[in-house]
């Protein structure tokens, strides 16, 4: 693998993950059948479908980039662009500073209900709010700068 082009390495990785996804979905559907394996089957199908979708998306992106060097260059420029990086950092910083204040409430909720489904929902809610805040600031700074 040493000396291999990073793009080729990525392609091999995602093709591997694609097959892993297919194997997991097949295991979920055809191997772990019956009431005993219901949860395991669901887990396999869920994870397999997720891996399959992500890998397909990544492979299509890699193929598109390989066919169009101009697109590849533009993506590299955008990834290195100092203003984009600054906007990202500022938005992330604001969002996660807000999260710092919200997490103690989530922890209290867990202790109160001892890992009840509601507490789990609160944690997920906090996480989602954090990311929504991040995207809001991303938009705000992109307009300001």
């Amino acid at each position: 693998m040493k000396g291999m082009k990073p793009m080729l390495k990525k392609k091999i990785l995602f093709i591997g993950l694609l097959f892993l996804g297919i194997v997991l979905v097949c295991l979920g559907f055809f191997v772990f059948t019956g009431e005993v394996y219901r949860e395991l089957s669901g887990l396999c199908i869920g994870m397999g479908a997720g891996l399959f979708g992500m890998s397909i998306a990544q492979i299509i992106t890699i193929w598109t980039i390989e066919k169009r060097p101009q697109v590849r260059r533009q993506m590299e420029i955008d990834a290195r662009d100092e203003r984009t990086k600054l906007i990202n950092d500022m938005a992330r910083s604001k969002a996660f500073r807000a999260m710092e204040f919200m997490f103690p409430f989530a922890i209290v909720s867990i202790l109160w209900g001892w890992m009840s489904p509601m507490a789990l929902l609160v944690i997920i809610g906090v996480y989602v709010i954090g990311w929504v805040t991040y995207f809001l600031y991303l938009g705000k700074y992109a307009k300001e700068m």
Binding site: I77, D78, R80, D81, E82, R83, T84, A142, E144, M145
Partner: peptide
């Protein structure tokens, strides 16, 4: 080697 938006923001003084 920057984005076009960066050039635009630079020119506008933002």
């Amino acid at each position: 080697e920057v984005s076009r938006q960066t050039v635009s923001s630079l020119e506008n003084g933002r």
